[in-house]
Amino acid sequence: MNSQVFKNIISFLIVVLLQIIIFKRIDLTFGSFDFIHFLIYPIFIIILPLKTPRALVISLGFILGITVDMFYDSPGIHASACVFIGFIRPYVLKALEPYEGYKIDHSPSLKNMGFVWFLPYCSIMMGIFMLFYFSVEAFSFVYYFEIFMRSIFSFFASMMIILIYQLISGARS
């Protein structure tokens, strides 16, 4: 139990540091085409252990989001998106529940659940996160084209990094 808490604290720190030190600074801009943002930190919420109480998932989402917000100078924007995916996580898990059910001690990571299950799960969570985040960031649906383009391109860019991150962390432990 304690080792799992400890592991998750470490993973929180790694994810936040990766986001603010490396991925905040990566800019892929081609003229006025600037739709690619790397947002990898929601992976922390996505792979929290299955038995984590629901209220704790939402609270952790808030803490994670507000931490990232501090470095993006945007109080509340990341936090609201994180709280939202923390809230919908049980519904997505329920919809994707395998035939034989979950093992209660597992976390829904690439290593534990396999690629075929993890890819759609992670895609749904990240897709919802991106749409929510960029909508809140623009704060008005007048910019629907930008919201849509940013969500799509950032989604693919971030998913790529997340899968690599999952492969590396799966191989390590």
């Binding site: 209220a55 939402i58 609270s59 109080p75 509340g76 936090a79 609201s80 709280v83 939202f84 809230f87």
Partner: peptide, 25 residues
């Protein structure tokens, strides 16, 4: 409980966002 927590936190977040130029900020 978790639904209430979710709503409370979201309201708090949006309050933060909207009041970006105010004292809280």
């Amino acid at each position: 409980g978790s639904v209430i927590l979710f709503i409370v936190l979201e309201i708090f977040c949006f309050n933060l966002i909207v009041s970006q130029n105010d004292k809280q900020k």
